[in-house]
Each structure stands twice: as structure tokens, then as C-alpha cells.
Amino acid sequence: MNRRAMPRSPLIPAPRILTLVAPAALALAACQPAPVEEPPLAGAAIGGDFTLVDQTGQARQWSDFRGRYAVVYFGYTYCPDVCPTDVQRTAQGLRAFAKEHPKDAAKVQQIFISVDPARDTPQVVGEFASAFGKDIVGLTGTPEQVAAAAKAFKVYFSKGKDEGAGAYLVDHSTVTYLFGPAGEPLATLPTDQGADAVAAELAKWVR
């Protein structure tokens, strides 16, 4: 073999090598998929079967909402402050989310569940829910049914002292849950931060 006939590789200075390698490394890194953020409530034992009644008098179960994202809030219609505020901000957040992501927003169902079945009849729950959005599902039931649903969703509630003439407050959890299409808990919605924050949180998880 004639070694003199073999082509010789030119020596490339070290700075030149780095110049060539760096863009290639960056291009390779750009091709790697970004890590997927796990929902904060992933794997939590929140949610479960219930049988309640909606504003039309129809029996509803948790399984009825499979295939859709569900936003669930437990409260009561006679609540003087936090319940209407949270439900309103959730509804406003959903509408803001719908402006940017109409197809995704169509997959979301807002649900209000009463923890005051003694006063919150289907008609009363329906009037309350419709005041914030025509598509909100309002649910109530017997005291036993409501208690079972609250237990499944890790929600606390307790009837306060009767002030006379049937007037009383109900102490309760004020968390707004977001569930996935299979009924899995995903996250809580920051209603305390306003409608825009709710819309932003929905955009992170609803696909």
C-alpha cells in the first residue's frame, strides 16, 4: 500500500472543533421531548361513585361524567359569600378558557354539589347554578347521599347553629377540583386568585 497516496485529514484547531460541535449538540437537545409535568393530584384518592339528583330531578352518578373533564365544587346555595364567589370565578374562568381554547373548553363540565340538602332542593340548586352559567350541573340528594359523596371527594362540612326560622350557616371545604375524563383527580383551581388564574390552570391540564 502506498501510504503517500492516502489522503491526510487536516488538523482542526480545538476552538474550531467546539464551534462545529456546539450547534450540533444544541440541535440534538432541541429534538428531545420536554418533560411532561405531572398533575399535582395525580394518584390521589379523591372522587368516587355517588348517586345524587340534578336540577331536573334526574338521578345522576359520577360515572355519567366519564369522557369529560369535570370541575367539582361542594357548597350550598344559602352561602353568603365564598360559594357564589368561587362558583362565579370558576364559570368566568371557563369562559375565558373557551375564548382561547373553544374545543378543549367544550370537554369541561362544571358541577356544583350541595352540602345543605335540607334546603337545597333540585329546584333551588338549579336556580343557583343557572345564575352563573346555563350549562352548570347542580346536584343534591338525601343527607345520606350527600354525606357519602362528600366523603368520597374528601370534603368536610358541618351544619352550624340554628339561628331561628331555619336560618343557619354550613361550614365546609372550599376546594374546586379538576378531574380528568377517566374520573382521575388532576388539580385544584385557584379561584382565590380570580378567573384568569382559573383559565390558566385549565390550560395546563385540559387537552
Rank of each mutant, 00 (worst) to 15 (best):
R207G: 14
A118L: 09
S130L: 11
K204S: 04
P143S: 04
K99V: 04
V170G: 03
Q123S: 10
R89P: 00
A59F: 05
R66C: 05
R89E: 15
V198K: 03
S158Q: 15
R89H: 11
S130T: 11
K154T: 12
A25G: 12
P143F: 01
P33K: 03
P84Y: 13
F65C: 00
A199F: 09
A150Y: 00
P122L: 01
S130Q: 14
R68Q: 15
G166S: 07
P40L: 08
L189D: 08
V155M: 14
S173N: 08
K151T: 15
A182E: 15
R68L: 10
G160Y: 00
P40Q: 12
G180K: 04
V72R: 14
Q61T: 07
D86R: 01
Q109I: 11
D86W: 00
V36Y: 02
P102Q: 05
A149Q: 11
A30E: 06
G160Q: 01
Q61L: 02
R60Q: 10
P13M: 07
P23M: 10
D135T: 13
L202V: 03
M1N: 07
L186Q: 06
A182N: 13
G141W: 08
L20I: 09
K99Q: 08
Q92D: 14
V53H: 00
A70V: 14
Q32G: 03
F132W: 12
T188M: 11
A27F: 09
R207C: 01
F97Y: 13
A24I: 10
A25C: 11
P33R: 02
L20Y: 09
F97V: 11
E127Q: 13
L41A: 05
R3Q: 05
G141T: 12
K159H: 13
A118T: 12
A187Y: 05
Q145I: 06
H172K: 12
V170T: 02
R3M: 02
A200G: 06
L20Q: 04
L18Q: 04
G48A: 01
T176W: 00
L178M: 02
P15E: 04
T174D: 12
A149V: 08
K161L: 11
D54T: 07
V82M: 08
I12E: 08
